[in-house]
Write a protein that binds this DNA or RNA. Structure first.
Lengths: 100, 100
DNA sequence: TGGGCATATCGGTACTTGTCGATATACTTT
DNA sequence: AAAGTATATCGACAAGTACCGATATGCCCA
């Protein structure tokens, strides 16, 4: 995963939007009885509902964001919870500050 | 010009490379008798020579980077000098720090 | 004023991305 | 075991991007 791949992941309105939502999940998503506020993240269905694209599209976007290290995924039962990956985000920030 | 457009501009190995070169032009490009060290920037031909792509491609890349505000262009005689645009870069940095 | 440069623009082709519907997988509850 | 969810993967196609070669534009100098 190169820096270019990270920027590609950010080069899409919806994916960028998802990332901003995941910055503050509690203000953008309804609380779940399981997961969200316990730190697992937000499940695919909630994100899909909010961005309004096809389920498969959202699933692919999330796994792309995960592949480039900007979010992490946790499977619990039949749900996959996604949340921001601070390490990946920090690496990106550092790259932008230092290298370009 | 949206944030997404900026990330699109960064989603290419060559354009990202050009931007890092322009961060420190003096260490990446030969000094010119006119322009470069006087602050105008680096001309298209020098950038093209360094990245090895077609002239038209490099010209298009540079004007894209300009359109999204990451570099500025100054025409002097038959040369166009490009340099980093600190304002644009700072706006990007701020966006990344604050919003995602 | 006509050629020679440096850069910009145009038109094309091959490859990549955006997005979908259909289907597969995997868990969970009867 | 069967049927129902939530998510993932696949195959498709339209739209966009990466580059290129050819040509246009604009500046400079004999």
């Amino acid at each position: 995963m190169t820096q270019v791949d990270i920027f590609k992941a950010l080069s899409n309105k919806t994916r960028l939007q998802i990332l901003t939502w995941l910055k503050e999940p509690a203000t953008h998503f309804p609380v779940q009885d399981f997961g969200e506020l316990k730190g697992a993240g937000v499940c695919v269905g909630q994100i899909q509902a909010k961005c309004g694209l096809n389920q498969s599209t959202v699933s692919e976007y999330l796994s792309l964001l995960q592949r480039v290290g900007l979010v992490t995924a946790t499977r619990i039962g039949q749900w996959t919870y996604y949340k921001r990956n601070d390490e990946g985000m920090d690496a990106l920030k550092q790259f932008i500050q230092q290298d370009i």
